[in-house]
Computed example of a mutant assay.
Amino acid sequence: MSNVNQVLKVFGLRPSVITRPPESFGSEVYDVILEGGERVIVKIPYNKGKLAREQRVLARLQGALPVPVVLDVWEGDEEITGALLLSAIPGKSITGPVDASMAYQMGQMLARLHEIPAPGFGHDTMNGFEHVEGNRWFRFVEDSFSSWGIDCQTVLDYDLYRKCCSYFEQAISSMPEPSKASMIHMDFRPGNLLAEGNRLTGVIDFESARGGAVELDFVKIQSYVWDVYPATKRAFMDGYRSVSTVSDLETCLPFYTFFNAFGGVSWCKRRGIVANQAFLKENVDTLRAVMHSSNKVV
């Protein structure tokens, strides 16, 4: 708690109660009730890039989606990367079962996000929006895969790693170019959605958001909602289509599922294999499943 106490002093705030919300795995997040009774959120991002990205994305989304307001920003010091002071949205992260009604609302919320145009394919920085080279979405995909491969080849067994590389080279050539750059969340899952009762109240955690292809945002909904509660897929898609359209989902989803899992293995390597064994296994199992379904049995 030492970091959050130091950050609160910087912001000139006196806490009464400090708790850690569930479903927070990357940056440090604290739910704080101040002495006067006001509730705020303190977020200490993993690095300064994530701090800048979340700050700018939240500013862009104000009035379009129920997202936190940035109340204050601290640029950090030699020990702490910096911090965001955010308004608290009513509701709690979704950790229990998802029914058709909630799935429908989730679909609508994701579509509302995707209806927001991005400046291009790329991400926000403190110096403005940084486009991918040539403003090409698949340049980002290729560069990410290459960067992640450095980590993955030290974690995956050689046969699985080799087959992953072969699958990527073949599959990416058949992926359709996205028609436009939309705002995508990159971690759209129940843990980053807030609800009161059976009413969806907000979306949080935009530190990885960027301008990209909307199909990538369906990966975690498939893993954490549709695969767990199969009856919710139709309701989710009905909600999504009530706001927007997605044409290449069935074609693209297997590839982006693979892409996300490969990135997940890299994340575990960088954040600590021992501390993230369960998440590592989840991603390796996904890679094996995709290889199997593509007739590249591991």
Rank of each mutant, 00 (worst) to 15 (best):
W226A: 04
Q222T: 07
N198Q: 14
V32W: 01
A83N: 07
I44N: 01
F11K: 10
N283R: 13
I172C: 08
K43L: 08
P254L: 07
N198R: 14
G37I: 03
Q277C: 00
Q62A: 11
H292W: 07
R189E: 09
V69H: 08
E38D: 15
R199T: 14
R271D: 01
N295C: 11
F258Y: 07
R56V: 00
G263T: 06
D143V: 08
L8T: 03
S27V: 09
E282N: 07
V225A: 08
R39K: 15
Q108M: 13
I18D: 09
E75P: 00
V69P: 03
E169N: 10
L113T: 06
A231S: 15
A64H: 13
E215D: 13
V40N: 09
R60V: 12
D227R: 14
A52Y: 12
L84P: 06
E133G: 10
K220Y: 09
G49N: 13
R162I: 04
N198Y: 08
R139G: 00
P90I: 12
L51R: 06
D159G: 03
T232M: 06
T125H: 03
K43M: 01
L58H: 10
F259V: 05
A52H: 10
G202Y: 12
L84C: 11
P254N: 03
G202K: 11
H114Y: 10
R56A: 14
L249K: 13
P45M: 06
V246F: 02
S266G: 07
I150E: 14
E282M: 13
L249F: 11
M106Q: 08
K50G: 11
G191N: 05
K269G: 05
I172M: 13
L65F: 02
L61S: 03
V243N: 04
I41W: 10
V214L: 09
M106T: 06
V57Y: 02
P176S: 07
S146M: 11
V290I: 15
Y30P: 01
I94V: 13
L113S: 01
Y104E: 13
V155D: 08
W137C: 03
K269V: 00
M1A: 13
G76R: 07
G96T: 04
L110E: 01
V290W: 00
K48V: 06
T125K: 04
T251A: 08
D159I: 09
C252E: 14
V219E: 03
G82W: 05
V203W: 03
V284K: 04
K92Q: 11
P22R: 08
I41L: 14
Q153W: 04
K92F: 00
S247E: 12
A235N: 02
G12C: 05
V32L: 09
E23R: 14
Y240F: 06
T257V: 01
Q55W: 13
N283Q: 15
R39Q: 15
